[in-house]
Design a protein around this nucleic acid. Sequence first.
DNA 1: AAGTGGTCTAGACCACTTG
DNA 2: AAGTGGTCTAGACCACTTG
Lengths: 236, 236
Amino acid sequence: MAQVKTAKFTIIKDHICKMIESGEWVQHSKVPSENVLAEQFSVSRMTARRALQELTEQGLLVRSQGAGTFVATFKSQSSLLEIRNIADEIHDRGHQHHALQLELISVDVNNELAILLGVKESEKVYYSEVLHFENNEPIQLEQRYVNSTLVPEYLQQNFAQITPHEYLSSEAPLTEATNEVEAILANSETCLQLNIESSTPCLQVKRRTWSSKGVVSLAILTAPGNKYRLGSHLTF
Amino acid sequence: MAQVKTAKFTIIKDHICKMIESGEWVQHSKVPSENVLAEQFSVSRMTARRALQELTEQGLLVRSQGAGTFVATFKSQSSLLEIRNIADEIHDRGHQHHALQLELISVDVNNELAILLGVKESEKVYYSEVLHFENNEPIQLEQRYVNSTLVPEYLQQNFAQITPHEYLSSEAPLTEATNEVEAILANSETCLQLNIESSTPCLQVKRRTWSSKGVVSLAILTAPGNKYRLGSHLTF
DNA sequence: AAGTGGTCTAGACCACTTG
DNA sequence: AAGTGGTCTAGACCACTTG
């Protein structure tokens, strides 16, 4: 049997996600208890518990001993750091944006990538490489791995016309994202693409994006440190 | 019995943290397996497993089926969404923090600084320079200009004992902050302080902080890009 | 072949909240 | 008093890595 079995706790998680996504369970709805889920899905209480626990860690549910498990309040995290379309950002600065599509292919996943995207190692993953320009200067290299199950028609797009962010927003709306920001030296190929010296420090953002159905993409955004910065405004 | 019992998995987690913190288990060291820990602590395998699992989620360990559990490569990470005390961040990673106070003086303000701090050019401004260490490696240089009117006793502090963030939080609680993040090459003095090559890219955060009474400080935080990163987790 | 982590079971006792 | 989540046990089978 080449088929990889889906874990039982995953099936329960998916079911709960679907109920929330479809709107059947709204904010503060009571979610079935561990015992009830265990019986419904014919699993042990520990397995039902794991599903609830993981969704709680992901922020979809809140739990209270004695009281029960409930659908969490959606935080519209007041755009402290929002994920914006780079084309919009550039236009808002009053500048011209254009993009070159350097790659758009299907690739095999390695172990790490499989874990980050939440796919099996046997699956294919789509990969795009887009270079963004601000007033004809290269400003950001966007390398993106995309979950082929969630976005099956990714390879048919033209990312000189529409940014991957725009396309993905329409196909699998963002529900969650993580960013990791580092200062790095780019490899020689990236330096050529960005038209910078090899000694120029770059800001690199590794961003994972989720829709309600799971991890949509892993984007690696590289920008010359002397032309690009990130900002945030926080209030308490 | 008023005593609250410490959970067994917490005891195991604490033990592992201590071994990492003390340096007995360095990066990539093999950590005892679930079975070994279960026997050592006289608990079931599931309980030992939980300790390893939670530390893995916290990023202290990495696990590989069939191969074992290992101490993770440590790359310090700060959140972009909250302003935290660096000493707390380091302790939460199970590491040791200490600090050197390199400067603590009164300085004249130049034009730009006066505008950023919202003070008149005739006023004095306090300046501190503190080098933060994680497990005896320099991890961040904190240069901070402080509004002398709002925090008159800043110069009387000892920032080897208490971080500027802690002191300022008690004197003039944060109500607002802005961050600007860049990738830069540090100047030669900073490179010496951080013990890095001049070609090492650094993450630099320029942070202005407000209390209810106005701008409290401008902090310039510089960290080696290969040891430090920023992170954020957004939900929509 | 032996050891490792991943999943799962069918129980147990407990602290806590609710009607 | 009944239901809920929190912790824990002593087993089981499996997929995977290593010597």
